[in-house]
Design a protein around this nucleic acid. Structure first.
Lengths: 123, 123
DNA sequence: ACTGGACTTGACGTGGGCGTCAAGGCGGAG
DNA sequence: CTCCGCCTTGACGCCCACGTCAAGTCCAGT
């Protein structure tokens, strides 16, 4: 299939696919007319990239998963490097959530105080 | 005081202060030599901006607080517009935390499965 | 007089993940 | 032949909160 179909089937755009290629995440054979030619394995790679970025992974973080798939593994997270990314992401998420919750509690406190001042005689 | 001192006392940089001014968050009187001249009220504004952005507010979100202070209020969050930003931010934080927690649980699940596959006979 | 530090404006750079436009090639339908 | 849709590369735009550099001005100290 060509790039347009891969984009449609992968739920993304041709621009994104070419960008992935520029990062070395995706490689394409070229047809006689110079156009990119993809197969089902490539669709699998795109799906992996999209599902991971959809969770919040950066493109660079998807690289181990993609390479794992290209090495013939059935799942992108069967390789140690992918698992390491999982762990790192998990730690990042923990820290991020922690910071946001701290921020939320501060905002809540501020909001409660501001409302108390604006309605000093509230029942 | 001049811009360097305001930056030091406000815990930021001269570049940031000029940027705030370009956004209309900060205004400065000019001395005879064309240099910006600030007073304690300006330091108060800078402190308000910094503490809010420190929590994760965008600069535009600090505008109501700054204007509230410039209107003579003792606290930046005494005005309805500021309280509205609090509420909006709180909703944003809730949604963001929710998404991140969902992502975290997905990553946890993936990690657990990946480890199960890599150690199929683990006790 | 000279040096050094603080100040001025203007303008480009950063990062991430593309969007969007430009200018053109290739192939099939009518 | 023309038109349309798909493809190609290259390059600039976007967002945000500044960092950083350039080139010059102003002032205090020695």
């Amino acid at each position: 299939m060509r790039i347009g179909e891969l984009a449609r089937r992968g739920g993304t755009t041709t621009r994104a696919l070419r960008y992935y290629e520029s990062l070395g995440l995706l490689t394409a054979r070229r047809g006689a007319n110079g156009q990119r030619e993809y197969d089902e394995a490539d669709l699998r790679l795109v799906s992996e990239i999209r599902s991971l970025t959809g969770i919040g992974f950066a493109l660079e973080d998807t690289r181990p998963f993609v390479e794992c798939l290209r090495d013939g593994h059935a799942s992108g997270d069967e390789c140690p490097a992918s698992v390491a990314v999982y762990r790192r992401k998990l730690a990042e998420l923990d820290e991020c959530i922690e910071r946001l919750e701290a921020a939320r509690s501060r905002v809540r406190t501020q909001l409660a105080e501001a409302e108390k001042r604006s309605r000093p005689c509230a029942r």
